[in-house]
């Protein structure tokens, strides 16, 4: 990786000052599992790296009667081990356990998970965010077995690989963001992720100098679950994930949310499919129908049609898992 100047400030004020005062490219370092790899691969080349590890206010989990507030620098292990999180949000715990590596869970942070760079192998091999070569998409012409089956009409064919995002969206979480002007603003989880239409565009709604500080999740009792399909049983990237959440109103489902992961450049919300379940009991037939509905608009590439089947099954199984 290229040489850079480094700072590990103790406050957000300092961090944001360091982020906005840089003359060259700057990177925010959280857990490091993604950023250091990206820097070694030469796809991120900051002249300044600002670590958030010493900012205590970004860590920890606060539980109140109506919400759970998670610091962005909370590690994935800490999140999964928290009793209230385990009780209220099994969809998040499943996603963290699914990572399969204690080391990653101990290092990786909630904020870092949400702000990862795509793992698209064309991107990681230096062909840019869209995997272009001489004006043509290598993803379309080449091996796209792990690429997007939704939202791939534009140049972005990669998939969002956040473990937590689908669950957080299903749980109606809010992302709390602090601007360089020290003002806080809230972004609904579903609005945080963006599909870029040009390589220089951001993958998130964060503006320059903004830092994701907390995630706030309603503490309302919902039934929720995540189902992930991986090739291996240990550390591996999922092929497809589905996170679902709904309110159980005496045996019928209300406010159903179904969100797919690893299928599109952003977490993929399938509201239309979710609506088919409103007011119904979640059983095998209803869950399967929802799965079928969820993939109705899928547009697989040349080699990833199997992910449509996986998405269909993941939705069904996540719903059945949530229903218990």
């Amino acid at each position: 990786m290229n040489a850079f100047e480094y700072a590990q400030p103790a406050t957000l004020d300092e961090a944001q000052a360091l982020l906005t005062s840089a003359s060259g490219p700057v990177a925010v370092l959280a857990g490091g599992t993604d950023l250091l790899t990206a820097m070694k691969q030469g796809i991120v080349n900051p002249a300044r790296v600002v670590s958030l590890k010493s900012i205590e206010e970004l860590r920890g989990i606060e539980v109140s009667s109506d919400a759970v507030r998670i610091g962005a620098m909370t590690t994935l292990s800490e999140l999964a081990a928290h009793p209230d999180v385990a009780r209220l949000y099994p969809c998040l715990v499943t996603a963290i356990k699914g990572i399969g590596s204690p080391q990653i869970a101990n290092m990786g942070t909630v904020g870092g998970d949400l702000c990862q760079h795509p793992r698209c192998w064309y991107y990681r091999n230096g062909f840019g965010l869209f995997g272009m070569n001489n004006g043509a998409s290598l993803v379309l012409e080449g091996d796209n077995r792990y690429h997007a089956i939704f939202g791939n009409d534009g140049p972005a064919k990669f998939v969002n690989v956040s473990s937590l995002a689908p669950g957080l969206i299903a749980l109606d979480a809010t992302f709390n963001v602090r601007g360089a002007d020290k003002q806080m603003r809230d972004i609904p989880a579903a609005d945080f992720f963006k599909t870029p239409s040009a390589p220089e565009e951001s993958l998130t709604s964060l503006a320059a100098g903004e830092v994701l500080t907390h995630i706030t999740i309603p503490a309302a009792q919902t039934r929720n679950a995540t189902y992930e399909v991986r090739e291996r049983h240990g550390l591996d990237w999922p092929l497809v994930t589905a996170s679902v959440a709904y309110t159980d109103a005496g045996g019928s489902a209300q406010n159903v949310r179904v969100v797919l992961g690893h299928v599109a450049p952003t977490p993929w919300v399938v509201d239309a499919a979710a609506k088919t379940l409103e007011g119904k009991a979640i059983d095998e037939a209803a869950a399967a129908a929802c799965g079928t509905s969820a993939v109705a608009d899928a547009k697989p590439l040349s080699m990833n049609g199997y992910k449509v089947q996986l998405a269909k099954v993941a939705v069904k199984r996540a719903l059945l898992a949530a229903a218990g």
Binding site: W121, N125, R232, G234
Partner: peptide, 25 residues
């Protein structure tokens, strides 16, 4: 070993997509 048909590059020359079985497999 997965190769790009256009450039000839090995696409998974790493240990996350060049997949070795783990202890659980």
């Amino acid at each position: 070993s997965i190769y790009d048909p256009v450039t000839g590059r090995m696409l998974n020359a790493d240990m996350e997509f060049y997949k070795l079985a783990g202890l659980a497999d």
